Amino acid sequence: MRPVRFVALGDSLTEGVGDPAGDGWRGWAALLAGGLSENRVEFTNLAVSGAQTRDVLERQTPAGLELGPDVVSVVIGVNDTLRCTFDIHAVAARLDKVYAAFTRQGAVLLTACLPDPGAMLGLPGALARPLARRQRAVNAVVHALSDRYGAVHLHASEGLWLTDRAMWSADRLHPGERGHRQLALRFHALLADAGFATGTTPSPEPEFAAPTRSASLWWLATAGTAWVARRCTDLLPQLLRLAADEMRHRARGTSARLDLRTSAAVSAALAALSVAEQPDAA
């Protein structure tokens, strides 16, 4: 019998950052792979730390399509929100192309909405709110497109697991082993309900001891700080402007306008995709 082929696309979350294994990372996708089938599973992880939707479309998708997956996960978007080039129209168009390519090939598509990085990092409100607004926009697009393409969608942006410190690694942006296991467990439950997962349910219990506090602080002060700096360097000047705009609107009592502006941008981005689907579109 041919093995089940599972291909994972995305960024550091899917790469497995926060769940160390030997000299590298394991992560939720690898944990999920073991429970997809009672028979052999061929798992390929194409996710790369720092990837944005452009990277998934232009680099990871062609490689993934060549593998002919039965199941493909596309979990991406946080790094787009951390760039000064953030454009919800571009994010929507890229995700639409990626989802369409794999579903046309007959793969079962896995997607997820994600928590906003500002809240996870504990940023001050004026800095966190613009990032939260961006992440909500990405999540709204992912929700809509997941429904359009019949994806198995995980609501990872909500739930008590987000506030459980034991689920998260030292950097507060990536799950620790326990958190990665929760993601694998929840995806497996959705797949099993849909009849796509027949293997053993991933265990929620960690296999390895959690890093000591001193080890976590050392990682955060070295590699972790460098990771955040690389992701946010070009965003900071714009984020400060967004924060100033946020404070002006709050002082005037017009913060709702910022939310309405974001909602309108999401609606326009999705409407543009619908127009593009028309057979007589230019």
Rank of each mutant, 00 (worst) to 15 (best):
A281P: 02
M247S: 09
T44E: 12
G27Q: 15
D23K: 15
G106V: 02
F6Q: 12
A264R: 15
V41D: 11
R241E: 11
W219Y: 15
A101M: 09
P279N: 00
V91R: 01
A29D: 15
V7P: 10
R241D: 06
Y149G: 00
R148D: 06
A221F: 08
E207M: 06
A93P: 02
A151C: 06
A281D: 07
G253F: 10
S73P: 06
T85D: 10
L242A: 08
A126P: 07
A30Q: 15
F6D: 12
M167I: 00
R26C: 13
R104N: 04
A197C: 11
A192M: 05
A140E: 06
G27Y: 13
A128N: 11
R2K: 13
F6T: 10
D96R: 07
R181D: 08
A226W: 08
P204W: 11
A184G: 12
F86D: 01
V56C: 04
A282R: 14
E158Y: 01
P69T: 03
S214D: 08
G35V: 08
G106P: 04
A215M: 14
Q105P: 02
D11N: 14
I76S: 04
A93K: 06
L260H: 12
R261Q: 10
S255F: 02
G253V: 09
T111E: 07
G199I: 07
P206Y: 10
R257K: 10
H153T: 07
L220Y: 03
L242G: 01
S263P: 00
R250F: 01
G64T: 02
A265M: 05
R2N: 15
L127G: 03
L121N: 04
S263K: 07
Q238I: 01
L114D: 04
T222D: 03
E158F: 01
G125M: 07
R248L: 13
G122R: 09
G64E: 09
F208P: 00
R231L: 15
V4Q: 09
L127K: 09
L109W: 02
L258A: 09
A189G: 05
G179M: 11
L258V: 01
A112E: 05
R252I: 00
L95H: 07
L217C: 03
A92G: 06
T201H: 04
A30F: 14
T200W: 00
M247P: 00
T111M: 06
V266F: 04
R178H: 01
V78W: 05
G125Q: 12
G106T: 02
R2C: 06
V228A: 12
V138C: 11
S263F: 00
E38P: 06
D19I: 14
S49M: 04
A265C: 01
F187R: 03
A151D: 04
G18P: 12
A8G: 12
L46M: 12
G159P: 07
V17K: 02
A184M: 13
L123T: 03
L191A: 05
T212I: 09
G176V: 02
V142P: 02
L160S: 09
Q182L: 14
A215D: 14
